[in-house]
Structures are given as C-alpha cells and as structure tokens.
Design a protein around this nucleic acid. Structure first.
Lengths: 170, 170
DNA sequence: TTGAGATTGACAGCATACTGACAATCTTTG
DNA sequence: CAAAGATTGTCAGTATGCTGTCAATCTCAA
C-alpha cells in the first residue's frame, strides 16, 4: 500500500497553508492600522510600546521587550524613534547604572489618548468581513493558539516580567 | 446616558486585540518554520517564491510579486538572494527588454523537493496545540477573512496575474 | 571580598516589508 | 509615426524582526 501521496508542489498548496495565511493576515492588519492611524505618526509596534510604558511606568527596555514579545535589539530602535518624537523619556536608574527607565512624556500620554479611537476602528475593521459570531470564534481560537504556542516563539511573551521593576518579588 | 466607556489604556487590551494576535501568530509561525527548516538555507518568503516559480516557470518579477502578495521592492532582494544561492536563474525576455524571466535551476528544484517534508512538519506544528476540529475551524475562518480583506492589504494578492505571461488573455 | 557568571543596552549583520522615485522600455492614441 | 502614458526592474529611505557579540555593570557564591 502506497503511503499518503505528498502534496503537489504548487502555489495553491501555499495559499491554504497556515503559515501563509498568518503572514497575509498580519500584512493586512498592519495595512489597516496604518490607514486608520495615518493622522498620527505611530506604527503598530510603537503603539504597543507606548501602551506598555503607560501601563508600567519606569519599566526598562529589557522588561518592555518581554512584555510585548519583542527582541531587545528591535525594541532598542523602536525606543530611539519614540524618544526622537518626544513621546517617551529615559532616566537612569539610581540603583543600577546599566538600566534606563522609560516614561511617557506629556506628548506621549496625549497622543495615546487621541489615537485610541483610531486604533479601535482599525481593530474592528480587521474582523469586519466576518459575521459577529465568527469574529468571536476566530479570536477565541487564535488567542488559545498563540498562548499555547508561546514557547515556540523565539521571543516568548513574558507579561509577568513587567512586575519585577517594582521591587524584586521572588 | 453616558456612551460606552472607552477601553482602559492598558497592555491587557492589546493582548486581546486582533492586530496583536495576528502579529504574534505570524512571529510564532516564522519561528517554527525556521526551526523545522534550519537544515535548508531557506526563509518562508524564499520558499514561497520558489514554489511560485516552480508553478509558473518563466514568470517575471512583477507578476511573481502579485502571486505571492509581495511588493516589488522586497521581492527584488529576495530574488537576488535566491539567485546568489543558485536556486533560480534570470533570462532576458526576447520580446520585452524590460523583463527578466525567472526559472528554477536544478539546485532549486532539488531543494524544493527536499524541503517539502520539513515545511509540512512546520505547518502541522503551528496548529498542533489545537484539537483537530478547532484547527479546521480556525483555518476556515482565517482563509475567509484573508480573502475578504484582500483589497485592504497594501499589496493585494493577484493570483490570476500569473497567467498573463502565457500570452496576453484579455 | 573577589572572581565567575548573569544582565543590560548597544551594535553589526541579515532578511523582510513598505513607499516613493527613476530611467529604460513598451503600448496606446491621435 | 510621434507624443502621452503605462510598465519594468532598481534604488533610496524607513521600520520591523531576528541572531550574534560586546563592554559595562551587577549578583552570587566560594
């Protein structure tokens, strides 16, 4: 008995592959975000960084990278750009000369308030073509899958890491 | 009566947002692909390009970019790298001096055959944490969403474009 | 206390991804 | 056929996203 025949080598097989669909969807999501937010000079990644700093004022770069699941290198340049735009500031940590603490500036807090509605429009638009029940189903499955696959990512999400800058708990 | 209160500005809202989940999932998918295929010197994008050229021998770069939903600029450098690795070759089109036609080399065809099992392992691993029924549901919804959102992407997929190099059918 | 090991931010290097622009070339239209 | 317009590959520029490495600094154990 012949084993399961291997898939034909065609582009149509690619179109149906999970990896391809994930890439396309991410591409589309970024496109929609940029369109809705073009009045604000912020990328999706910069937005996530600002939100995280707003949630955890005084966080350092390494911890921030863990909180939004980014490698430290990429985050370094993101921080640089946010600082150049005067949305965040970096202060040296008194008790550790290696560390620079991140804070929103007034400007940063303001743009965050202003951009929220645009971001919410963008998020809604991404799912708009689906029926409400399907949107919920898709988000549920995806949240599950991302969570269960967290360790498979080269830069796993470590949301708890954010708490460490508030005095080392265990 | 107050309108729906706006979402609190916290990182937890980001974790549940479609855009964030799409980015994370893409990140995880690339990571798994690279892990399974590390024996072969190919990225997901390079793999997609090879498959597309295999399916459409003699396609040109612009058409190829439409077939795998890539901007021409990025594809230019992808092609360069594939050529440097001797997986593809470019031949001038006799009837149009602007165009360079793309073909797989023997090397390219060989690596494509060899890498397929690893790619299939990678694709399977991405969905592994879900129950089979959930995998199917997720892929169905995602395929639908990507298709319905095609035009929202900055570089929409134009699969039909691939046929044009076989004599212009209006 | 001191030396091994870990952590931090920074950098070099590679590979996407996109925009906008450009010269060379082709097509279309008057 | 010639001028207008479109298309092709390429380039410069910006922003992710990752792997490594490094010096400065901190921590922890002998």
């Amino acid at each position: 008995m012949p084993s399961k025949p291997s898939a034909p080598i065609t582009i149509d097989a690619v179109y149906a592959a999970p990896g391809y669909l994930f890439r396309r969807m991410q591409q589309i999501a970024v496109s929609i975000f940029m369109e809705e937010c073009k009045a604000f000079d912020l990328t999706p990644v910069q937005y996530a960084a600002l939100i995280a700093i707003h949630t955890h004022p005084g966080i350092d770069a390494t911890r921030l990278s863990a909180v939004i699941a980014f490698d430290r290198s990429t985050l370094g340049s993101v921080i640089e750009r946010l600082q150049a735009k005067d949305y965040i500031e970096r202060k040296p940590a008194p008790e550790d000369k290696r560390i620079k603490l991140l804070y929103l500036t007034k400007s940063g807090a303001a743009i965050l308030r202003e951009i929220i509605p645009a971001v919410e429009r963008a998020q809604a638009r991404m799912l708009e073509p689906l029926k409400p029940a399907d949107r919920k189903a898709l988000m549920g499955l995806l949240a599950q899958l991302v969570d269960l696959n967290n360790e498979a990512s080269r830069v796993p999400l470590r949301a708890e890491d954010a708490l460490e800058h508030l005095g080392k708990g265990g």
